[in-house]
Design a protein around this nucleic acid. Sequence first.
DNA 1: CATTAGT
DNA 2: ACTAATG
Length: 347
Amino acid sequence: MSPLPKVEPARTSKQKLEDDKRRHALDTLQLVTGVGAVKARNLVTAGCTSIADMRKPEYYSTLTEAQKIGLRFVGQIPEPVTREQAETVLDFIRENISSKFEVHLGGSYRRGAPVSGDMDVILFHPTHVHVPTPNISHSSAFSNRKITGTSPLSSKSGSRMTKAEREASPLIKDVVQPLTQGGLIAATLSTGARKWQGVVRLPEKDKDGQWELMSERVKLVEADKGFFRRMDLNLVPWKSRGAAMLALTGDIEFNKDIRLKAGQLGMHLNEFGLWRWQSNEPEEPEANAEEAQQEGSWELMEADTEEDILAELGVDWIEPTKRNFAYVVGKPTKKKATTVKGKSKER
DNA sequence: CATTAGT
DNA sequence: ACTAATG
């Protein structure tokens, strides 16, 4: 009387256990900055199942430079940054670079969070850096295609930088270098013309409120002594300050929402500004080839503060601290029957 | 190009 | 939704 088909409990539970272990290994390896789903899977498949394993030469040698840095600071980087720590770093930066830079903190700090996962530093400079034209065509709503690399405009300007160009860039020369020599910057994860990502050692003040000696800080960095945190430096053209403040303050859902709104109004919003599409003169429509060459171009709108951009989008001012969770798009004096978005993830 | 990261 | 850097 046991017509029940027999299952195989031994095999099933063993399988389940191995699945759990594998998942745990994948999650663990992804604690290292720069290690994502693909790299973690490759490592686990190769037999690397722990942070300690990752330091073995056979695995370590497969890591990128950024992943090696991530591994070096894996015990420190996940630690949250307090507002006080962020403000200390901000003070230090202001004291150690040219006063021509206007320095702000974005991210969850600006949204009022008590602690943040990292520091998002925004640097405005009145002269340096130019504003790149968006790489998408206006009809992207229908044909989601980008302008091809054969476009005379897009092919060149956004291209890569040589090492020499990189070191001559204002972000590196005028910001990263002094902050490194000052003993703030401990390691670089990635660095380009307008974005630097890396690790800083929190500067400390002595009993008299004086910073540590510069030479002391540099030694402490080399000895891995102190508190290390993630920081991003963003160099922003003056004209892009409003768009950059919006983009770098977030949160993600807020950014998506106002960008969607811009698109619905036929505009394009990115961290460089609010753009409107300018069609080319039809000029002489006769005899034109089947493929119209240039349909038009994106032109930067005047709106260069957060207020102006939001106003242009028909959105009333929203305090940064209100950009965290549910927020309303549309007229505030009307019913609340407008789009409300929830949140999911925050550090 | 894919991967990772960032709001 | 959209962009930057790496390899």
